[in-house]
């Protein structure tokens, strides 16, 4: 009786999960399959779930049309540099704010937190002028420096600080006994223990950089320097008419690799995220 009820409950639960999963899976499915359809089938109504006449034609045209390979490389290397840079800057700052009682550390931390509250749209004009003064417009510097040192890295610092605050004091005591200085404590004791938090910061910063849209649109004007989100909106003919199939193929190529990497490594990602100080 009881097992029968729990079996039903289980089935109901699975059913609910499956229904809920549809809007999460369908867009990606549709994007991938539509990118294989010829342009006129994309708008077939009702839509076909699988292309009647699959073709990779549009994928080739992506590369004809834009320096897509270079743009892919740009996005990739910028995201990687931003990730590594953010890990360094935010773990050090997070460590300092959590474990070193230097004068004004609480006040300074509050000041840093202001960055969390500023939409990038607010500061884009002055930033543009500042970078222009240094001749850095239409270079990748703004897309590297601002995420690593500016407002976007504040969330990372917050995550790291919350994590380091929770580290038991005894661990550092032991390190001190071994004669470690501040840097030693940070590098040898704190960092190795903070892998989950570092993992979360890495995902956040990678995705943030990878998704950046307004900044590249404002800062970059040479197609060879474009990043992917910016490139994605440019698949139009010379008069602004959209080229749907090519655009979808490009979108698939930007989304799928990251998605696959994520699915393969998702356990570390999600668990890293789950074990951060963000849980309070």
């Amino acid at each position: 009786m009881r097992t029968e009820r729990s079996r039903r409950a289980k089935l109901a639960l699975y059913g609910l999960l499956c229904v809920l999963a549809v809007p999460f899976v369908f867009p990606t499915w549709w994007m991938v399959t539509s990118s294989l359809k010829p342009a006129n089938e994309i708008f077939a109504f009702p839509p076909t779930l699988w292309p009647a006449d699959a073709t990779l034609h549009a994928y080739g045209r992506v590369f004809d049309f834009a320096p897509f390979g270079v743009q892919y490389f740009n996005s990739m290397y910028i995201a990687l540099v931003v990730t590594v840079g953010t890990l360094a800057v935010s773990s050090m700052a997070g460590y300092a704010f959590a474990r070193i009682k230097f004068p004004g550390h609480n006040l300074l931390f509050l000041v840093v937190l202001v960055g969390l509250l500023i939409p990038s749209e607010v500061t884009i004009v002055p930033l543009f002028q500042m970078f222009n003064r240094f001749g850095m417009v239409d270079t990748h510097w703004p897309l590297l420096l601002v995420p690593i040192f500016g407002a976007p890295s504040v969330l990372a610092t917050l995550i790291m600080r919350q994590f380091f605050i929770a580290l038991p004091a005894e661990i550092e005591e032991a390190g001190r006994m071994d004669g470690l200085g501040r840097f030693g404590l940070y590098w040898r004791m704190a960092l190795p223990l903070s892998r989950p938090a570092l993992g979360a910061v890495a995902i956040f910063s990678f995705l943030h950089s990878w998704n950046l849209y307004l900044e590249p649109v404002v800062f970059l004007s040479t197609p060879e320097k474009f990043t992917l989100p910016q490139a994605l909106t440019q698949f139009t003919d010379a008069y602004g008419g959209p080229m749907w199939d090519v655009q979808l193929s490009a979108a698939t190529m930007t989304a799928l690799p990251v998605l696959i990497v994520f699915i393969v490594a998702q356990r570390q990602f999600v668990e890293g995220l789950a074990h951060t100080g963000l849980k309070g």
Binding site: V125, F128, P223, T233, Q234, A238, G240
Partner: peptide
């Protein structure tokens, strides 16, 4: 020759002007 996207062309141009560029 610096091709800007047709979509938002005037905005991009104006932004460049505003940024002393």
């Amino acid at each position: 020759f610096d091709p800007l996207p047709f979509d938002g062309y005037t905005s991009t141009l104006t932004t460049q002007i505003a940024g002393d560029n």
